[in-house]
Design a protein around this nucleic acid. Sequence first.
DNA 1: GCCAAATTCGAACGCCCGTAAGACTTCCCT
DNA 2: AGGGAAGTCTTACGGGCGTTCGAATTTGGC
Lengths: 222, 222
Amino acid sequence: MSPTTDAAASHEVDASESEAATKNLVFVAAERLFALHGFQNVSVRDITAAAGVNLASVNYHFGSKDALLFEIFKRRTAELNRERAKMLHEANDRNVGSPPLREILAALLTPPLRWLAPDHERRISLQFLIRARSEGTDEIRQVLKTDVSHLRRFSDALLRARPDLSPEEVYWRLHFTLGMLHNNRFAEFDRLNVLSEGQTSEADVVALLDRMLSFAEAGFRA
Amino acid sequence: MSPTTDAAASHEVDASESEAATKNLVFVAAERLFALHGFQNVSVRDITAAAGVNLASVNYHFGSKDALLFEIFKRRTAELNRERAKMLHEANDRNVGSPPLREILAALLTPPLRWLAPDHERRISLQFLIRARSEGTDEIRQVLKTDVSHLRRFSDALLRARPDLSPEEVYWRLHFTLGMLHNNRFAEFDRLNVLSEGQTSEADVVALLDRMLSFAEAGFRA
DNA sequence: GCCAAATTCGAACGCCCGTAAGACTTCCCT
DNA sequence: AGGGAAGTCTTACGGGCGTTCGAATTTGGC
């Protein structure tokens, strides 16, 4: 990779944990580099250099490079799923147990698209998650398959909104919807930035969410 | 990777070219390994071992490992695009210049899903293409961006079928549709195989195509 | 049958990688 | 003030990687 000096990486760490600052520096630098260049194209030396810490820090604090990737993935996945579950729960409350299609899909798609906003704190995290999902280690793929409980909440809700569809059909359509989302790996750079002349605006993200929701909702109504 | 002996890789080469058999052996073995394990996880030594040829063959016949990847990608992409263009052309002939939505989308989705059929000769090629699209080198990403001419044919046709939509809207929906398709990276193994108890049948693929078409068509009608 | 070109082969080079070992420093608790 | 744990640092090891080189071998035209 390019040895651009991401080094002066600020002194404000996550503040969410009072652990060693070094660990957070590594975590943040690694997430950023993994998101931008991919897991295999980023070396431990790249990470520690960007974080401004010692080479041995990764293995001391995380055990191994793979374990570091996995830890970032676990934390960010949990955060994203928490936001999704919260929105779904609120939709349930608002609609006495059976929200309309669009609200269910909004609970699924809004959190990641919020993260995608130009100055959002988790923007790079979403890029990381999408990349990790496709390039990740076997361990990550295992989590993705095992983490059915989270998706089940959504397929159940969708099934309640469209009880005439078979569970299998609902599962496929959910799969399609997630495909729409995950394919924004490069679109985040290409389309989103190109369409608005290099500067992604908040409005663009909102418009994109709207487009995705309309498309997916229609797909589910078919 | 696992050093499983893919070695005895048959004597029937592509027959499409009368060039050195070694070159084809390398081509086929590399495509298979890249598709199954990803570009970065397959070494030149893995490829030549699986192909049963000498280590230096890759560099002699293709120049470099990257060039090999690129050559496979170019050939398979051309083949796939040719099939798509042919179907779109036939749809145009059948409908005096402006086919209905579903026929346009069928021209886009049918070829790759045909390749996905259990005993199709190009099954592994499609897995390769989907993988290369997301993990590929910068050179491949450049081709994907440049290869607008192929997608333009489809966005133009779609625009003619839905003239009330803005070109931007059409382009996004096309992007969504391709996302549905490309996300079948692991689905090919997980869903498709799981649902039919380990044995993907031709019928499953046809059913999947139908589901995708219905979903995408509804999305475009929204 | 011969020679030159094309191909195959074995071996090695140089590089970068993830990880570990051991010395050194910092910090906190009593 | 001292001692032990926690963290940081330097250094290097072992290994796999893509690539290259020169010799050996095969091929094809005359």
